[in-house]
Each structure stands twice: as C-alpha cells, then as structure tokens.
Design a protein around this nucleic acid. Structure first.
Lengths: 125, 125
DNA sequence: CTTGACCTTGACACTAATGTCAGGGTTTAC
DNA sequence: GTAAACCCTGACATTAGTGTCAAGGTCAAG
C-alpha cells in the first residue's frame, strides 16, 4: 500500500506518516522507484501511534514500546509501565500547578470584587 | 536606570526586558546615545509582568490590562475580568482533558495487570 | 588612550508535530 | 504521448518566551 492510501485509510496526513518514519515509528519498504510500500499491519500501527500521541506521549516515548504493543504483548512489555507511570506523574504535576494558578486567579478576582464593594460603601456613606 | 540595573533588580534577563518592550509592555525613553532609560516605576511593572506570565497569561493579554493594574485601579479596569474568566475557563478545560487522559492511562495499566494475572493463572493450571 | 564593562540591533536556536511549498520523478488513464 | 494524479526530498513556518552569539557603539577607570 502506498502512502496516499495509508493516509486515506487512517485519516493521518502524508506529512505525518513521513514524520513517523523519520522518528523510527514506521519502516515501510521501498519499491523500484523509491515509493514507500506499507504492509497491511501499518494501518493498525498508525492508529496505535495516534492513540498514544493523543494521550500526550511523544513519538520518542512511543518508539520505546510500539514494537511490543503491536505484537499484542503489551502485558509483557517492560518498557510500557515506567513510561505510563511517568506520564501519569507529569499529568498530576500539571493538574496541581493548574489548580494553584486557578486559585490564584480566583483570589485576585475576589479581591477586586471586595475592593469594588468597599469603594461603593465609601461612596454611599 | 539602564537595562542592566533593571535586570539585576528584578532578576529578569536583559533579553526578556527587551522582549517585553517589543511586545508593548515597557516603554523606556532613550538617552543621547540610544541607551534605554527606565523610570523607577519600571521595577514594579516588571514584577507585575512576571507575576501574570507565571499565571499563564500571554504578553498580549497582559498588555491589555497592564496600564490600569499599574495605576492600582485594578478594580475598575474592565479589561481584567474577561481575561481572568477566560483564563480560568481554559484552565478548567485543560484540567478536564488531563483527567480524561489520566483515567485512560490508568485503565490501560489496569488492563495490562489483569492480563498478566490471567496469564499467570493459565500457566499455573 | 586603552581596557573592560556595558549598551545597541539583528539573527538563529529551542520544543513537537504538522502544514505547506518548490522542484522534480513516476504512474495511470485516456 | 500527454495530462492528471501521485510520489520523492528538502526546507521553512507555526507558538511563546528566552538563551545566546556577532558585530559594533559608548562610557568609566586607570
């Protein structure tokens, strides 16, 4: 299957497919004229890549375990667990920071409201 | 005050001070030889800029309300509220997305654990 | 009057995945 | 045999703030 067909089947752009290859995620063979030739497994592989990209993993991280995920041996792929744990820890840290910022912003809004209230009181006295 | 002194006082790099100026956040005058000359108010202004950058606002957003925050009239600056509200909404959306991703990752880890368990059972029977 | 510390502008690098364009080769259908 | 549709590589742009370098002007102390 040529790159255009794979792109059409998966909804992933030709540009991205070439990028995944460059990052070591796909390894199509080349035909006589240099065109990429993808196996039938490439389609599932691309969907898997997209899945993990959407979960916020980088192509580098995905490259670290894609080979065993594709063999349906996720369960015995020792590379998967630490990456998932690390990602979850990152997410927790991000959520914490966002909550801090949100609270800070809310405090600021509240103090503005308080100040307005005070000013209205003073005007009215 | 020249740019180096302002950088030393605030802990913000010379590079960043020039960038803030380019983004319309600072407007130092120039002396005869073209050197930037900052007023004494610039120091507080820079600290304020850093505060809001750390809260995740962009220089463009900060430029939208910095003038009135600096006059200590935050309370009557109509520009502040919608920006804060928008930022809080963005943060909520980000937290939601991160939670979805986290749950997805946890489910995946759990299903790997379950699969391992199943395989161990099968081996042992 | 020279040295070193400071200032100026302009430019490129970084991150990560993707869009897009240019310039050129191949294949397919008519 | 030609035009359309496809493929190739390489390169630059995007975001947003900051680091860093080059090439050069200015200033203060000795």
């Amino acid at each position: 299957m040529k790159i255009g067909e794979l792109a059409a089947r998966t909804g992933v752009s030709v540009r991205s497919l070439r990028y995944y290859e460059q990052q070591g995620l796909l390894k199509p063979v080349r035909d006589e004229s240099g065109y990429r030739d993808y196996s039938i497994f490439a389609e599932e592989q691309v969907r898997t890549i997209q899945l993990y990209l959407n979960l916020g993993l980088t192509t580098e991280q995905i490259a670290g375990f894609l080979h065993c995920v594709m063999k349906n041996k996720e369960a015995f792929c020792t590379e998967v667990f630490p990456i998932f744990r690390q990602k979850i820890a990152e997410i927790d840290a991000q959520i914490n920071q966002l909550n801090h910022i949100k609270m800070n912003l809310e405090e600021r809004m509240q103090s503005i409201l308080d100040e307005r209230q005070r000013d209205e009181m003073e005007e009215g006295k």
